[in-house]
């Protein structure tokens, strides 16, 4: 890489900021552009951090303010954020990805892992802990492959979300399992199932599956 990677570190843990900054500046290809506590930053308008990569340890801060951050180069369509997570939480990981994080690394990573992740994110590559890859694959599969035939929606007047639930119900998944796969609350799934039952006019989950199978192609 020709130019140095300019890194911005945002964390309320000053020791973390300073130590990570020390490690990164020892690398010939990295420099620290900015280092600050997240709770001291009030984002109200678009911010140009003037950095290639933002290392952040607060997913809440990313969710609240990520949309206000401007990519450094106009060619980039995504802010290059590397999130260092203190909790090994799959839902947190999904929220970070949705909020725009390009990299996600866990607290049991080594300092070398963080440096490697900074370099990957700077190149525009995504970084994901191996143990979360399966979760991500399952999540994407649940979102796309399992959509039933369009006729189901048209003939039963199901919304897209309700339509998405039908094959999962058919596979025998519980509300809790569906909620986990779709990153929704169990109560939300319960409400969706209730509405599906009402629309189709059946009494239980078996009835939903049977009704869908009886539809003409």
């Amino acid at each position: 890489m020709g130019q140095n990677i300019s890194v911005c570190i945002l964390s309320d843990n000053r020791l973390f900021r300073e130590s990570l900054g020390r490690i990164l500046t020892k690398r010939s290809d990295c420099e620290i552009a900015f280092s600050h506590g997240v709770s001291e930053i009030a984002c109200e308008e678009p911010i140009d951090w003037n950095a290639d990569v933002i290392v952040l340890d607060s997913v809440e801060f990313l969710i609240r303010n990520g949309s206000l951050w401007k990519p450094r180069k106009e060619s980039c369509d995504r802010i290059k954020v590397l999130l260092v997570a203190m909790d090994e939480d799959e839902q947190l990981f999904l929220r970070a990805v949705r909020a725009g994080a390009l990299g996600f690394i866990l607290k049991d990573a080594s300092a070398l892992d963080v440096i490697a992740a900074v370099r990957c994110v700077a190149r525009g590559e995504a970084v994901c802990p191996p143990r979360f890859c399966k979760f991500l694959f399952d999540f994407i599969a649940a979102q796309t492959i399992e959509l039933p035939d369009r006729s189901v929606r048209l003939q039963l007047s199901l919304t897209r979300r309700e339509q998405q639930l039908v094959p999962m119900i058919g596979r025998g998944l519980t509300n809790k399992e569906i909620a986990n796969q779709l990153n929704l609350s169990e109560q939300t799934i319960k409400n969706h199932v209730h509405r599906i039952l009402h629309k189709i006019g059946v009494e239980n989950r078996l009835g939903i599956v049977a009704a869908v199978h009886e539809l003409p192609n």
Binding site: L15, F16, S19, R22, V84, D108, A111, V114
Partner: peptide
């Protein structure tokens, strides 16, 4: 523990 914090502390203190 966690490992990252340990290594960052080591980087700071071990440099002295």
């Amino acid at each position: 523990r966690p490992r990252l914090m340990r290594e960052l502390v080591l980087a700071t203190v071990g440099d002295q």
